[in-house]
């Protein structure tokens, strides 16, 4: 983790101004940390409460907003894990398959489309760009029925295909737009130089643009992971056989308003399902820092 301000070479400056600035900076650092820690605690409290609740007996969950634990109910985890015909890991593996497919699909298709929109001139470009934006704007609930008809005609219902194939076809226009914004932020002289050296678009794309947009790719990968991992609606509609269920479907099935809900297990498995997401984020955020800043720019 390189720290940019620290590694940047300090310019020669007048001694006094330098000292004043140093004192200011010294004051600033603890202040900043106090601020950040205060923010972090507010952000974290509900999350901690969820973890603590997952270790509480059912009857206590709704009566206690604090973080104290009187008796530990570890059974929530074992009960939740074995609540269905398959162990909970089965549903997590299904989710992982969908998620990996979706990430590869999005990285591949959206970066290509984004390059075209950001760097190439072609006919009716503005119209196509507007079309792309419009596709983000229509709520899923009204297209789900025609879309379901389409996928059931293709015999894709109850497979992971309706959840993965569209990603390879850049239907998540959000990420195209994201990458377009990033590519437009990359100085053009870099690809101009390659162009003069006789590189084609494929080479410029692979050798110059892609390496420089690692932060955007990492953002895409992380978001795709999290959104697909949490996505409930399309998985609900397209996956019918319980063996194909993914994590959010299994989690939802814990909750029943009319009769009993084993909240302890529901919380425990919510926590379990968060672990992979959190780990991916921890690992993936490293790549958010790459890019011009650390690859040296020019």
């Amino acid at each position: 983790m390189t720290d940019r301000t620290a590694t940047a070479p300090r310019p020669l400056a007048v001694d006094r101004a330098h000292a004043v600035r140093r004192i200011k900076r010294r004051m600033r650092v603890p202040l900043k940390h106090v601020l950040l820690i205060a923010c972090a605690l507010t952000m974290l409290y509900p999350v901690l409460w969820m973890v603590v609740s997952s270790l509480r007996p059912n009857s206590e969950i709704f009566r206690n907003a604090g973080l104290d634990l009187t008796h530990l109910q570890v059974e929530n985890y074992t009960n939740g894990w074995n609540a269905y015909s398959e162990p909970f890991s089965h549903y997590m593996i299904n989710s992982v398959i969908v998620v990996i497919g979706a990430i590869i699909g999005n990285l591949f298709s959206c970066s290509m489309a984004a390059y075209a929109f950001a760097r190439l001139e072609f006919r009716a470009k503005r119209v196509w760009f507007a079309t792309m934006l419009v596709t983000i704007m229509l709520p899923i609930h009204v297209i789900i029925v025609p879309q379901y008809v389409l996928f059931s005609e293709l015999d894709w219902v109850n497979t992971f295909l309706p959840l993965i194939v569209p990603k390879f076809l850049a239907t998540d226009a959000f990420f195209i737009f994201l990458m377009v914004q990033f590519i437009r932020g990359i100085p053009r002289e870099l690809d101009e130089a390659a162009w003069i050296d006789g590189a084609g678009h494929a080479r410029i794309f692979f050798n110059i643009i892609l390496p420089l947009m690692v932060p955007a790719l990492a953002t895409t990968a992380i978001f795709t992971f999290i959104w697909t991992w949490n996505d409930f609606y399309s998985q609900l509609i397209y996956l019918t056989d319980p063996d194909m269920y993914t994590t959010p479907l299994a989690l939802r099935a814990f909750v029943d308003q009319q009769t009993e809900t084993d909240w302890g297990s529901a919380f425990a498995m919510s926590v379990v399902s968060l672990v992979p997401v959190f780990l991916v984020f921890l690992a993936g955020q490293r790549f958010l820092l790459r890019g011009i800043a650390t690859t040296g720019g020019k």
């Binding site: 609540a83 099935a253 084993d262």
Partner: peptide, 10 residues
């Protein structure tokens, strides 16, 4: 097909 929680499914 039915609605319900895990106990019912079992």
């Amino acid at each position: 097909t039915w609605w319900g929680a895990d106990a019912r499914a079992k």
